[in-house]
Design a protein around this nucleic acid. Structure first.
Lengths: 136, 136
DNA sequence: TATTACCCTATCGTTTTTGTAGATTTTAAC
DNA sequence: GTTAAAATCTACAAAAACGATAGGGTAATA
């Protein structure tokens, strides 16, 4: 299940991309437009800024704005920052690998085998989708 | 993230398929072989039985056994029974559809658009994988 | 001085995972 | 037959983890 954090983050990014001017947009405006709890969105936008997707400006006329072109923003990176691993089990994750504590041999594990395929298929989608593709 | 319930359920099914004889296998044996909490596994096997994947026999010499050929057991059905929806958001789920309470128009929603593709790609994998494919 | 992002913390609620305790059914030994 | 052992079945509950949200204060900027 996709967390609301990711969902809201994606919606916020899409909104910022659709506004297209580089003027800062206030948290309150995004929250209202997308029906998101403002306080929650606040923390989400912060992580997006810390991870190089957004810039921000304080004070009057301040807000958040995209610092990269929508076409340059891949879903792989957005998802990894907001949701974490793309893989459904850590033992098949490229960026968040962890060994299972059960499971003596990954290569013989049926779950591993299946989830490797699922990961690859999801990766295929995320790699071929940019923020620009999500704007209707 | 895949729940342990699903993970353990898949491992148990694979184990039962690999044993291949139709003799009942005890919960304790499966739990031990796959490093699974026996009590937890017990409830998982129960749901698999209730959903027509397994048969059981009580008493001495009892246990669980497959009642369908591994080749006939599709991952789509296993995942749906153990994990629930394959889709990452309810609004793109085929079997567990729910409307988002935010989101006035699904067709314009960026998350909807993205997750529809992710669902389809996962579905592609699950539909083309049977229990027999997971045995090494 | 007003406005806005920034930051930390606490809390509530849900889900997941595991454990406890016993009831029920079947087999097999006596 | 009676009994004991071996297993599944059932319900519940507790613990742990996680997700989502809210509160309140700080810092920067126009």
């Amino acid at each position: 299940m996709l967390s609301k954090k990711t969902k809201y983050g994606l919606k916020a990014l899409t909104y910022l991309a659709s506004v297209d001017c580089k003027e800062p947009v206030q948290i309150a405006e995004i929250a209202k437009h997308e029906n998101i709890s403002q306080k929650f969105l606040e923390s989400i936008l912060l992580t997006l800024r810390r991870n190089g997707f957004l810039g921000s400006k304080k004070g009057k006329g301040g807000g958040y704005y995209l610092i990269r072109e929508p076409k340059e923003i891949l879903m792989t990176s957005v998802i990894r920052v907001l949701e974490g691993p793309i893989a459904m089990v850590p033992c098949v994750s490229l960026n968040f690998y962890e060994k299972c504590d059960d499971c003596p041999d990954e290569n013989k594990c049926s779950v591993h085998k299946l989830m490797l395929q699922v990961r690859d298929s999801a990766l295929e989608v995320y790699r071929n989708t940019t923020l620009a593709d999500l704007i209707s």
